[in-house]
Structure formats: structure tokens, C-alpha cells
């Protein structure tokens, strides 16, 4: 049984990963946690039955691998702690809260996979296999959405998150399009706004990027859905190819549950994407393989998100090559 430690627990996915490791037959368990915010650490450790380490180095000494799920602004120090201990890492997205962080993470000598679980969503896996056969022709354009509600916590605090809806959700669709098409991004433009006034970050955002092949790709990453909306989190992509159009819904594998009072909810069925991602991560570590989702892929998608943030602030089209 692989012993997994958490570096930080502020991210909403920390609890999801602990639960997925516990529920699945992945061969790994979350056992310990280090978070510099001791109150936060105590509450999370108690809720999930984890040991608490007093610092990052002692956590790394007690486990076989780590998952970085802290505030975005701490990713660099957390990944570097794991690097010093020679431990394999799963780093939550985005891959850096700033361009500086992104460069530092890329330059860090560490076995690091990036958390893009939507790569494992069955409709995307099926689409990738179909696209690779080549019959659909070149990509003409893509329109995607990854909308949700405001996650709360540090996400609304720019100093710790790096940004709002643009930093939280652009990367998933950006990575999915790269995985499906192999296309690189060239420019990005974005409009963003604050309509619910959560923290000091943008909560609505629409991105319109181009690829080096001349296709366009749009991503709605807004926290536009009401907090209590059943099934509010979405992940959809329409891909126009020369010879066909593909509609993908990464959240479609769920059933509708209607309670006696008429309230509705959705229940995911089948193997979840987090479980599939963690399983692939554990297998790669055990077999000595390369990280399933390499740092460079994390950097590519994150660069698009950070470029979009800059565009929204300056009102200009951002040339992504100029950011490197």
C-alpha cells in the first residue's frame, strides 16, 4: 500500500482525492498532512483521519508520494519540498499562480504529474481515440464551457489564488483541447468581470484563443452558477472538424435523483475521473514510468489561463510566445 501525504489542504479537491484513494482499489492511501495553517490542518486531519506533520520535510520523510493541494500561491514551496526529498508529486492545477511560479515549477527537478482529471472522462477518452484515426479532418474551431459556482475559501483572495474564475477553470478545457488535437495556443483574448463581488477576483470570464493552426478556441470559465444549483458544474466542448462536429459532455455520466420533497440532484455513476487519474498516477510511480500528465502540459494550459488574465486586465490580445 503506497503511503500518500498531502502538502496543503486548502484546495477544494483535497477532500475529493482523499475520498477517491479510500474508496478505490488504487493501492494507495492518504495517511498524513502538512499545512502551515495549523487551524486548517487540524480541522482537515480530524475530518479525514490523517496524521499531522509539523513541517513539509517531516511529512515527506513519512510518505512515499505527495499530492500538492494547498493554496495556489504555495505550490512552488510545496513542490520544492517534495523535490528535496526526492518524492513523486501530483500537483493540483493551475501549474503556478503566476508566470514566475510557472517557470520555477517547470525548472524544478522533480517527478511531477499535474491534476487534469478530465483527461480520464470517458467521452474525452473515446473522442481522442476517434480523432487519432484521422477521419474527421483538421480542427476548425472549438467552443467549450467549464462553468460552476464560486468555490469559496482562498479562491476569492488573489494573493493566494493568483486570480479567480480564469485561474480556476480555464486550464481544464485548455488541456482537454490540447490532448484531443495536439494543437498549441498562439494568442488569447478575454473579457472578465465581477458580478457577485466575491473577494477581489473575477467571477465571470469568457476566453477566446487561437491555435498556431489558425483555429479558434473559446472557453467560458465563469463561476456563474448559483451555489446550490444541482449539477451546476459543467464541462462541455463542441469541436468543429472539417468533416464532422463533436459534442462532448464530461459530466454526462450521472443519474437524476428526485427526493420526496421534489428537490433534484445528480448522482455520478461509474468510475470517477479523480479515481481514474489517481490510479494512473500510482501505477506510473510504481512502474517507474514518466508522469502521466507531465509538467509541460500543466504549464501549457496554465500559460493560457495567465495570458487570459493579462488580456482581461489590459484589454489587449496577448501573444503567448511573448510571455515565455
Amino acid at each position: 500500500m503506497m503511503r500518500v501525504g498531502l502538502l496543503g489542504c486548502a484546495h477544494v479537491h483535497a477532500a475529493h482525492y482523499v475520498a477517491a484513494l479510500r474508496a478505490g482499489d488504487i493501492g494507495a492511501r492518504a495517511v498524513a498532512l502538512y499545512d502551515p495553517d495549523s487551524e486548517q490542518a487540524a480541522a482537515f486531519a480530524a475530518a479525514h483521519g490523517l496524521e499531522r506533520a509539523t513541517d513539509a520535510a517531516s511529512l515527506c520523510g513519512a510518505v512515499d508520494a505527495v499530492i500538492v493541494v494547498s493554496e495556489h500561491s504555495r505550490y512552488v514551496e510545496m513542490v520544492q519540498s517534495a523535490a528535496r526529498a526526492g518524492l513523486p508529486v501530483l500537483c493540483e492545477k493551475p501549474f503556478g499562480a503566476s508566470l514566475g511560479d510557472l517557470r520555477t515549477l517547470l525548472a524544478t527537478d522533480v517527478w511531477c504529474s499535474v491534476a487534469f482529471p478530465m483527461r480520464y472522462a470517458p467521452p474525452l477518452v473515446r473522442a481522442k481515440a476517434m480523432i487519432e484515426q484521422g477521419g474527421l479532418g483538421e480542427l476548425v474551431a472549438m467552443s467549450g464551457t467549464n462553468r460552476g459556482s464560486y468555490p469559496g475559501g482562498f479562491f476569492g483572495d488573489r494573493a493566494r489564488s493568483g486570480g479567480g474564475a480564469l485561474i480556476d477553470h480555464v486550464v481544464h478545457v485548455a488541456d482537454a483541447l490540447y490532448v484531443l488535437s495536439g494543437l498549441e495556443y498562439e494568442t488569447v483574448y478575454a473579457e472578465a468581470g465581477r458580478f457577485r463581488n466575491v473577494g477581489d477576483v473575477e467571477d465571470v470570464a469568457q476566453v477566446l484563443a487561437t491555435t498556431t493552426s489558425g483555429a479558434f478556441a473559446s472557453i467560458d470559465s465563469s463561476w456563474s452558477r448559483p451555489a446550490a444549483m444541482p449539477g451546476g458544474l459543467d464541462f462541455q466542448m463542441t469541436l468543429w472538424f472539417e468533416r464532422a462536429t463533436l459534442h462532448l459532455d464530461g459530466m454526462a455520466r450521472r443519474g437524476l435523483v428526485v427526493a420526496a420533497d421534489g428537490s433534484i440532484d445528480y448522482e455520478e455513476y461509474g468510475r470517477g475521473v479523480n479515481e481514474a487519474m489517481l490510479s494512473a498516477w500510482v501505477r506510473a510511480i510504481e512502474s517507474g514510468a514518466a508522469p502521466p500528465i507531465p509538467a509541460l502540459d500543466g504549464a501549457r494550459a496554465t500559460e493560457l489561463a495567465l495570458g487570459a488574465l493579462r488580456s482581461a486586465e489590459t484589454g489587449r490580445v496577448v501573444d503567448l510566445a511573448a510571455l515565455r
Binding site: A141, E191, G193, F195, Q206, L208, A215, F216, S218, D220
Partner: peptide, 29 residues
């Protein structure tokens, strides 16, 4: 207004992003 287009004229795909004076954002495929 900001927009992008792709594909041949007779099967063109366009994306239009509009900013209202109210601050609201509209996006159209």
C-alpha cells in the same frame, strides 16, 4: 466587441464576445 472566425465562408463558424456598458459579458457561437 471581439470576434474570431474559422472555416470556409459557406460553413463559417464565428465566436463573438461583447461587453455591455452595464459591465455584463455576452458570448455567442
Amino acid at each position: 466587441v471581439f470576434a474570431r472566425a474559422s472555416g470556409p465562408e459557406e460553413q463559417r463558424v464565428v465566436a463573438v464576445l461583447a461587453r455591455h456598458t452595464s459591465g455584463a459579458i455576452s458570448y455567442l457561437d
